[in-house]
Design a protein around this nucleic acid. Structure first.
Lengths: 222, 222
DNA sequence: GTTAGAAATGATGTCGACAATATAGGGGTT
DNA sequence: AACCCCTATATTGTCGACATCATTTCTAAC
């Protein structure tokens, strides 16, 4: 499973606390906008304040919390504009990722990706749409990794994707569009298989743009 | 001066140490690839190890240093591939920034930007090419800010630009190309003034791509 | 009653010391 | 001589205590 490749292993205590806190924030166990008290968290997680501070610092570099000197840290507040801006960055970066993937992925990786899509197609056809989000993630992650660009990978995987997931969970949005998105995935993979960098980027950008428009529509409804 | 808007003010001791360390790293006072010993730095900068640790953590989130658990932190090592990859990310992000700037900049901001370019043109015509790098920075910063996209601004201003500067200084590259770059800037601004998002993005991407090609050529020479 | 200022409270920032881990060096064996 | 293991050393990770700052609350003056 290629997603398992991202399972960051926590060696130090601060690592564990950071990962735990990130889950709690992204999944909404700690509500958005709330204050992160160091003393409070240190008793809650049974670690020293230094560990909590380090964890909070890392959360800040993920843009999940904002910190003000001598005041403290708050979880970022979610706004529709914030999500739109996030998708704009995502469009630019994943578009470039698709372009680079078309250039840099090995034939074997492309074959794997194609197989993944076929597999995905079966589950969609069988109506098991609950696998859909994991499949979508796997698709995007493989292309991001396929870019072989460390900066791109870092920003997307460790930064933007957690934020997007936080928005998804907390704004109560369902997973991505199921049926139409699949065709878009297929076309992107075809472009990559054809080593057509230009088209791969264009299709990926359009795919994410559609996703953004879809989200905007849902946001306006509620 | 719009660049002054980025002068992050250090309130805490960790802030000052972070900013100082960042300068020392980017400007090469501490050589690339070298180890950052916490005890050593704490005596050198006359602050406690906790402060140093926090500063190093922030440097890590800027991708200026890499840290391994129970081992320590090292300044990132510079490779030609790394610089290329950095420019790929920059191309994607600043392209999007130009697109958004064409949409979101106010008429007044655009007028200021045009004035800046005219000013810049005078200095270039007078042969004062030593002002060129600051002018180039100002141009790019205004467009990035003009995007009004917080994520974009954060990643570019606090992340990528420091790394690029580090590469410039340490690989001994001169500032950006002087004469041809000016025309490219002019065309980007015209596209923004015309609110032509598509063209603004395309021209900005091309501008950065040229820059990248120029750098690649220089790297191969040496 | 309102406001300005000062004390009290609680938080974050900083520090030095201890614990746990990685690395280097020495001693012994094959 | 090469290799492994054990010890010594130095570095990082973690902790609790103190200093410093922001905020709240009380008091006093107008």
């Amino acid at each position: 499973m290629s997603i398992a490749a991202f399972a960051e292993q926590a060696v130090t205590s601060a690592d564990k606390t950071f990962l735990q806190l990130r889950v709690d924030i992204v999944e909404g166990a700690i509500p958005a906008g709330s204050k992160l008290s160091e003393t409070e968290l240190s008793t809650k997680y049974q670690v020293s304040r230094a560990v909590i501070r380090e964890a909070i610092n890392r959360l800040e570099s993920c843009h999940l919390v904002e910190r003000k000197a001598n005041v403290g840290a708050r979880i970022v507040s979610l706004t529709p504009e914030g999500l739109i801006q996030l998708y704009q960055v995502r469009e630019a970066l994943e578009g470039m990722a698709a372009r680079l993937a078309a250039k840099n992925m090995s034939d074997e990786e492309i074959a794997d990706l194609t197989a993944l899509l076929d597999n995905h197609f079966q589950t969609v056809k069988d109506g098991e749409s609950y696998y859909q989000e994991a499949g979508d993630l796997d698709f995007h992650y493989r292309i991001i990794l396929g870019s072989k660009n460390q900066h791109l990978i870092e920003v997307l995987v460790n930064g933007i994707y957690h934020l997007i997931r936080m928005y998804r969970v907390q704004l109560g949005m369902a997973g991505p569009r199921v049926t139409t998105a699949f065709d878009e995935h297929k076309h992107v993979v075809q472009a990559i298989a054809n080593r057509d960098e230009e088209l791969a980027e264009m299709l990926m950008r359009r795919h994410i743009l559609y996703s953004k428009n879809n989200i905007e529509r849902k946001l306006l409804q509620s």
